[in-house]
Deep mutational scan, measured.
Amino acid sequence: TEEFVRLWREAVRHNQTLHWNGTDFIPGDEWAEEFARREEEKL
């Protein structure tokens, strides 16, 4: 979602874990980066 992408970019900028829907998205984590890339492509 647009909100997820916005929060993810913020988390990456501050190198912080994003807690989203009970899942931890960690900047630099391969799975999280791939998920975020797919979400961005949907926008």
Rank of each mutant, 00 (worst) to 15 (best):
T1G: 14
T1D: 12
T1K: 08
T1V: 13
E2I: 11
E2Q: 12
E3H: 08
E3I: 10
E3Q: 09
E3R: 07
E3M: 09
F4G: 00
F4K: 00
V5T: 08
R6W: 11
R6D: 13
R6G: 06
L7Q: 12
L7R: 14
W8D: 07
W8V: 06
W8H: 05
W8P: 05
R9K: 14
R9Q: 15
E10R: 03
E10Y: 05
E10P: 00
E10I: 06
A11C: 15
A11R: 00
V12Q: 10
V12Y: 03
R13L: 15
R13T: 11
R13D: 09
N15D: 06
N15W: 08
N15M: 10
Q16R: 14
Q16M: 14
T17E: 04
T17F: 05
L18M: 08
H19T: 13
H19Y: 07
H19I: 08
W20K: 01
W20S: 01
N21G: 11
N21K: 14
G22K: 04
G22H: 06
G22M: 04
T23Q: 15
T23L: 15
T23Y: 14
T23K: 15
D24K: 08
D24Q: 09
F25E: 00
F25K: 01
P27Q: 02
P27G: 03
D29R: 04
E30A: 15
E30V: 13
A32R: 01
A32P: 01
A32M: 03
E33K: 04
E33V: 07
E33W: 05
E33T: 05
E33C: 11
E34F: 04
E34K: 07
F35D: 02
F35Q: 06
A36H: 02
R37D: 04
R37M: 09
R37K: 12
R38T: 10
R38W: 08
R38M: 13
R38N: 12
E39F: 14
E39S: 13
E40K: 08
E40Q: 11
E40M: 15
E41I: 11
E41Q: 14
E41S: 11
E41D: 10
K42H: 06
K42D: 03
K42T: 06
L43M: 12
L43C: 14
